[in-house]
Measured scan of single mutants.
Amino acid sequence: KELVLALYDYQEKSPREVTMKKGDILTLLNSTNKDWWKVEVNGRQGFVPAAYVKKL
Score class of each variant (00 low, 15 high):
L56R: 03
W36Y: 08
Y8R: 15
K13M: 14
L29M: 08
W36D: 01
T19F: 05
M20I: 14
V39Q: 00
Q45T: 14
K21Q: 10
S31W: 10
E17W: 04
V39S: 00
A51T: 12
K54W: 10
Y8M: 12
K55W: 08
R44H: 08
L29N: 03
P49D: 02
K54Y: 12
L3R: 11
I25A: 03
S14H: 13
P15W: 11
Q45E: 13
G46Q: 02
V39P: 00
T32N: 13
K34R: 12
K21V: 09
V48H: 00
S14G: 13
E40N: 05
V39M: 02
W37V: 08
K54C: 14
L29P: 00
V4L: 14
N33Y: 09
Y10I: 01
Q45L: 08
V18N: 04
A50N: 03
L56N: 04
R44F: 07
K54I: 15
G46E: 02
K13Y: 05
L5R: 09
L26A: 09
S31D: 15
D35G: 10
E2Q: 13
T32S: 15
Y10P: 01
E2G: 12
A51S: 13
L29T: 05
N30C: 11
D9V: 02
W36R: 03
W37Q: 01
K13V: 10
N33E: 12
W36S: 03
F47Y: 14
I25S: 03
Q11L: 12
D9C: 05
Q11N: 14
E2I: 14
A51D: 10
V41S: 14
L29K: 05
K22F: 05
R44W: 04
L28G: 01
W37D: 01
L26D: 00
M20G: 00
E17N: 06
K38L: 15
G23P: 00
F47I: 07
D24M: 15
R16F: 15
W36L: 04
K55I: 14
V39W: 00
F47W: 15
L26M: 15
L26Y: 12
F47L: 09
K22M: 09
V41K: 15
N30A: 11
L28E: 01
L28S: 02
A50E: 03
N33M: 09
Q11A: 13
F47V: 07
L26F: 07
K54H: 10
Q11W: 14
P15N: 12
V48A: 04
V4Q: 01
T19L: 03
Q45N: 08
T27W: 14
Y8D: 08
S31L: 05
L5K: 08
K21I: 09
V53F: 05
K54R: 15
